[in-house]
Design a binder for these strands. Structure first.
Lengths: 147, 147
DNA sequence: TATTGTTATACTCTATAACTATA
DNA sequence: TATAGTTATAGAGTATAACAATA
C-alpha cells in the first residue's frame, strides 16, 4: 500500500471514529435534555468565571445571534442565568446556576470520555496522543474549532 | 498525566483534527457547487453500479425522504439521472452522468486527501493507521456511519 | 398489504441584516 | 459613532407522517 492509499485509509478511519464519538456524545446530551449545540455552549461556560455572551460566541466560533437562542434554552432549563453587567449595562453576564453545574459536569465527562479508546494499552495511547498532536500542530491553523 | 487525562486529550485532539478535515472538504465541495450533504450523496453513488434511491438512503444512514431533495439537487446540476426501473416500476435507479463522474472524482479525491497528515513520516503514518484501526475495530459498532 | 419514492411539515443549527439600548 | 444583545429571516440538514403508484 503506498503512502497516498495509507493516508486515505487513515482519513476515512479518523472520520469513522470521530463520528462514533460524536454519536455517543449526542445521545448523552439528549438524555441530559440538551441539544448538541446547547450542550457545547454549556461546556464552554466556566462556572467559576461568568462571562458575557460575546465571549461565548467567540469560543463557539459562531455568530452572536445564535448564542441568544442557545442561552434562551439553557435559561429556560434553569441551567444558566443572564445578569446585566452593572459596569456596562449593554453586556449580559452568563452565570451557570447550581443545577447548571451538575448538568455541565455530565457534559464535560462525556466530552472527554474515552471508552472508545479502551482497546489501546497505555503505551499505544501515548503514541496515539503524540501522533495526533503532531498532526494537529502542523495541519490545523487558527480557523479550526472543535465543533 | 494519568490515563483518563491522556485519553481526554486524545479525544479533544481527534475532534480538532477531524473538524479541520471536514472544513477543508466542505470548502472544496462548495467550489464544486455542492452542499456537503449532496457531495456525500454523490460520493456514495457508484458510477458503474447504478442503484435505487433506497440503497443510497441506507448508505447515508438517513431517511428516504431526504434523499429525494439531495437527488433533486444532483439532478438539477446534471450530475445524476433518475430512471424508473423497468423490472419494478416503483424503484428509481440513480445513474451518475458523464459530468457527474468528473465532479464525483473531485469529491472522492478531497475525501481521501491527506495534506493534513503531511507532517508524519511513512512509519508514523503506518503506526497511526494501525492504532486508528484498532480503535475503530473495537469501539465502533454497527450503528456508526461516516457522516 | 407491503414497499418506493414523494410531499408536507417541523426542529436544529447556522448566517446575515436590521433594530435597541447602551456607551 | 461603535458595541452588546436581540429579533427577523433564510437556508441546510434531518426526522416523522401521510400519500400515490406499484408490487
Amino acid at each position: 500500500m503506498d503512502r497516498a492509499d495509507l493516508a486515505a485509509d487513515v482519513v476515512r478511519r479518523l472520520a469513522h471514529v470521530t463520528a462514533a464519538l460524536r454519536h455517543r456524545q449526542d445521545s448523552v446530551f439528549a438524555e441530559l435534555g440538551l441539544t448538541p449545540a446547547a450542550a457545547r455552549a454549556l461546556h464552554e461556560l466556566d462556572p467559576d468565571r461568568p462571562s458575557p455572551a460575546r465571549d461565548l460566541a467567540e469560543r463557539l466560533g459562531c455568530d452572536r445571534s445564535n448564542v441568544t437562542a442557545l442561552v434562551d434554552k439553557l435559561e429556560q432549563a434553569g441551567l444558566v442565568e443572564r445578569r446585566t453587567d452593572p459596569a456596562d449595562r449593554r453586556q449580559k453576564t452568563l452565570v451557570v446556576t447550581g443545577p447548571g453545574r451538575g448538568v455541565r459536569a455530565g457534559v464535560v465527562e462525556v466530552m472527554s470520555d474515552s471508552r472508545l479508546l479502551a482497546a489501546l494499552s497505555d503505551e499505544e495511547l501515548r503514541t496515539l496522543r503524540d501522533l495526533v498532536w503532531k498532526v494537529s500542530d502542523d495541519g490545523c491553523p487558527e480557523q479550526c474549532d472543535t465543533r
